[in-house]
């Protein structure tokens, strides 16, 4: 292959060290916030600003290098593989939270209510012999012992039904998977206007999803009394939907960047790795949502 005749090694760059410092500042600020340390807000704010500066700067550099034609076929393959493995690591991150959900539903709740008694442990008799397994656990094994320190859990009576907002959100995300694919076809057929239009539709669907999700949170907290402090149901509900919502937001921002780049005439029929990477990410977020819809909301 001709492109392999000379390897491409990028020149040194300030961005990796800037990225390290900004993540460090962000983490330092977060830790200080948790500890209520003086000046935590400033460090945290600085960290956020530094992160934004770094993302914008690093990606601008990479985009201009890509536009200048520095990246050969081999670099393109490296980027593709890198993105693929990054998505796998994200899958495993979500796996931890799904694992927690399945563990709670299949083991800890039944055990706390006495299943497998004697065979496994005597938790039920020794601790809370009146606790009965239900899912969603709106009655905690020990309702007065949140945070392990004698505070009350926040109780709730009903949960968000699957076939309300969540079903609409499922439709929105699935539809956005279709629109991003139509945009990809348009890119391959060199139809610039259609590309931008369908990307815009995808971004819009993404943000509508996030809006509905926020509405649902308001409803859950204000009307139903479901909070992260609502025992294992509230814990798994908010961590899973929260991290997913964060990923959708990130994905929608990334799609928006791709849309603006398309408007400026970036990407060609053959050379559009950034588009594909973001599309993969979007589909990943979509698949995670299907898992959420089924296991968090539906069954």
């Amino acid at each position: 292959m001709a492109s392999k005749d000379l390897y491409y090694v990028p020149h040194g760059s300030k961005w990796p060290i800037v990225a390290t410092l900004s993540v460090f500042t962000f983490f330092l600020g977060s830790a200080m916030l948790f500890n209520h340390s003086a000046g935590a807000n400033y460090v945290f704010g600085l960290g956020i600003l530094a992160l934004i500066y770094m993302f914008v700067g690093w990606f601008s550099d990479v985009i201009s290098e890509s536009r200048a034609g520095n990246y050969n076929k081999q670099v393109d393959v490296s980027f593709r593989m890198g993105m693929g493995w990054f998505i796998l690591s994200e899958v495993m991150f979500f796996a931890a939270f799904f694992g927690a959900l399945f563990y709670a539903r299949m083991y800890s709740i039944p055990w706390l209510s006495g299943e497998g008694n004697g065979g496994v442990n005597g938790t039920h008799e020794f601790l809370w012999s009146s606790f009965q397994a239900v899912w969603p656990t709106n009655v905690m094994p020990d309702p007065s012992n949140a945070l392990g320190g004698g505070q009350a859990f926040s109780q709730f009576t009903e949960v968000i039904p699957a076939f309300g907002i969540p079903a609409v959100n499922t439709a929105l995300l699935l539809l956005s998977g279709v629109t991003v694919t139509i945009a990809h076809w348009a890119l391959k057929e060199r139809k610039r206007k259609a590309l931008v239009f369908w990307l815009f539709a995808t971004v819009a669907l993404g943000f509508i999803f996030v809006f509905f999700q926020a509405e649902e949170y308001m409803h859950a907290i204000n009307d139903l009394g479901i909070t992260p402090n609502s025992g294992i149901y509230g814990s798994t509900f908010y961590l899973l939907t929260g991290f997913h919502g964060f990923h959708v937001t990130m994905g929608a921002i990334m799609l928006a960047v791709i849309m603006f780049r398309s408007l400026k005439g970036h990407f060609s029929k053959k050379d559009h790795f950034a588009f594909e990477a973001v599309a993969w990410y979007w589909h990943f977020v979509d698949v995670v949502w299907l898992g959420l819809f089924i296991f968090v909301y539906w069954i």
Partner: peptide
């Protein structure tokens, strides 16, 4: 982190965790 600062019950049996 969320168990300590946000009141979740992943590892707190009183709330159904373990």
């Amino acid at each position: 982190l969320t168990d300590k600062y946000f009141g979740t019950s992943f590892f707190n049996a009183a709330g159904g965790g373990d």
